[in-house]
Design a protein around this nucleic acid. Sequence first.
DNA 1: TTGTAAGCGTTATCAT
DNA 2: ATGATAACGCTTACAA
Lengths: 339, 339
Amino acid sequence: MGRDATIIDIAHRAGVSTATVSRVLNRTGKVREETREKVEAAARELDYQPNIVAKNLSTVRSNVIGVLVPDVRNPFYANIFVECEKYANEKGFSLLLYNFLESESLERHCYDMLMARRVCAVIHIGGSVERIEASPGFVEKIGEISERVPVVTSSFVEGTGSRCVEIDSGRGMKLLLDYLLGLGHERIALVGGREDDKPTAKKRKCYQEALRQNGIRYGNYYTAGSGTYNEQGGYLAMREILQKDKLPTAVIAVSDLVAVGVIRAIQEKGLEIGKDISVASFDNTYIAEIMEPELTSVGNDYGVLGRRIIDTVFDMMDGKTCQDFGEIPVRLKIRESCS
Amino acid sequence: MGRDATIIDIAHRAGVSTATVSRVLNRTGKVREETREKVEAAARELDYQPNIVAKNLSTVRSNVIGVLVPDVRNPFYANIFVECEKYANEKGFSLLLYNFLESESLERHCYDMLMARRVCAVIHIGGSVERIEASPGFVEKIGEISERVPVVTSSFVEGTGSRCVEIDSGRGMKLLLDYLLGLGHERIALVGGREDDKPTAKKRKCYQEALRQNGIRYGNYYTAGSGTYNEQGGYLAMREILQKDKLPTAVIAVSDLVAVGVIRAIQEKGLEIGKDISVASFDNTYIAEIMEPELTSVGNDYGVLGRRIIDTVFDMMDGKTCQDFGEIPVRLKIRESCS
DNA sequence: TTGTAAGCGTTATCAT
DNA sequence: ATGATAACGCTTACAA
C-alpha cells in the first residue's frame, strides 16, 4: 500500500511544477487549457486526494469549525448541529463536535482542544455563554479566543469579540401567552430553566410582563423547576405545583423535554392533558410530535438558525463588519396539548 | 494580536534548540531537569498552544477520528457518538462527525472528505455498511480505505480490512420473545426495518425461528413496515396490521422510534397499549422512557458499545491483530408497555 | 503562463 | 543530554 500521491507526484507525471499543479487544483491563477488537462489527467490517474492537513498548515487557516454544545443527545442541539453541518459542508467546511456534558471544566478543556487544532472558528451553543453571571475566567477566555478566530454564540457575551445568533424567546413567550390567554386561561404556570440563564431569564421577564399587562397575577405558579432543562426537572417542578391548592389551568415548559416531565406528573395525578391542564413548551423538536397528546410548542426554523450561524461565521472570517443578527424568528405550532 | 507562539519562540527564549523543546513538551527523550524547567517556564510565559496541524503533518498521523452516521438527531446514534467521544477525548482524540442523512451519494462524499482530512480512523455506523447487498462500488471504496486507516463498522463488511462491533440483536430478539411468550402472547407481530438491512434480517430470522420452535406460526403479522426506521414507518405498518381481522396481541418494533408510530396507530384505533396490545422495541433510548406508557425495550449499554468501538480503533491503529469483537450484549428493560 | 523556492510548525534522525 | 537539519505536503510571492 503505497503512500498517497502528492502534488509532487502529479507535477512529475504531468511534467510541470508543483506551483502549476496547485493552481490547477485550486482553480487559482491562470493556466493554459492544455496544461490544465495534463495536470487533471495525472491527478486522476494517481487517484490524488489532497492533504488538507498540509494545506491548512500552509495557509495557516484550517477549514474545520469547532462546535461546542452541552449534549447532542438533546434533540434541540442535534437539530442545530445538523443544520449547521449542511451549510458548512456545502462550503467545504467540516464540523468538529464537542459535547461538554454540563461540565464547566470540560467546557474549558474543549476550548483548549479547539485551539490546539487551529479550528478556523468556533460555534458555542448553550452552557457558559448563556450564564447571566459568567463564571470567572470564562469571559477572558472567550475574549482571548475571539481575537484569534470568529466565535459565534447563542447568547451575547459582553466584552468579547464574539457575535451571537439568538433565538427570539421573548417573542416565543408572547406567542404562547397570547394563544393561551386567547383560550381563556388565566392561571398559567411557567416551569423549568435555571435561574442564572439568559434565555430563561428573558422568558420569565416576558411572562411576567405579559401577565401584568393582562391584569393577571399568578406569579406563584412561576417556578425555577429545579434549575434543569430535562424531563426530571419538569417532573419535579410540576409535582411541587400540583401540591398547591389552586392549580394552574395551563403550564408553559421552557423546553419540550421539560414538558415531558410536566406531562408525566400531571398524568400521574390522574389529570388529563389539554383538558384539566393544558401544556405548551419551547423548542418544537420532534419530541413535541411524538408525545401523546402531541405538544403545542413554539420554536424556530432550525434550517434558518443553522444558516444564520454559519453565515455569521463566514462573514466574520471575511472580516465583514457584521453586527449581531437580529433574533431568529419563532413560530407557534399548535397541536393537541392545549384547550 | 501577535501570532501564536511556536516552539521556535520557546527555543529562543529558553536558549535551547527546538528539538529540546519538542522533547520536553512531549516527554519524549531525556532532558536535564534544569533544561526542562527552563523550557516549561518559557512555554508558560508565552502561553504556548501546540499546533496540532503541524504536528499531524509532521507525524503523518492525525488524531482525529471520522464518524459517519445516518443522523445524530436519532437518539440511537447520538448515544453512540457521545459515548465514543468520551473515550476518544480521554485519549487525546477528537471526533469529526458527518451525518449522511440517508443519502448514499452524501455518504460517499463523506468518505472523500474524511480522507482529505487524513483522519486517523473512521467509524461508520449504519447506512451502507448494513446493507445485505452492498451498493456497487461501496465495498471497493471501504476496502481501499481500510487499507490506509482503521475502519470500524456496525456490521461486517466482507472482503475489506474493516472490523465490526455488532450489537447482539439476535439475542435481543430472543429476550423480547421469551418475555412476551412468557406473558402468554402467541400472536406477536414484528414491525419495521428495511428488507435489505443486516440487523433487521437477523432480527427477523431469530423471530421466525423462535416462533417456530414454540409451535407458533403468525408470520402474517410479520411486515416490512414500509422499509423505514422512523415513526412514520411504524405508524403506516401498524395501520396495515390493524386492518386484518385477527389482531396480534403484541408487537415488536425494530426501534423505539418505530414503536412510537406503532403506538400512535394503536391508540388512534381506540385500543390500549399494554392491555389490548402490548408493544416492545429495540434500542432502549430515552424515547422509551418518555413515552406514556413507558416502553419495554431491549438495548445495549451504550457506554460499553462506545468503549468497544474506540478500543477496536486503537487496537487497529497499534497494528494489533485484533479480531472482531464478539457481539455487544444487550439486556431487556421491562417497563409498562406489555402485559 | 509557468517555475523556483521560501515558508507553515512539528518531529525525528544524526551528529556531537 | 542537546543541537542541526531534513522532512511532512502544500501555498504563494517573486522571477522568468
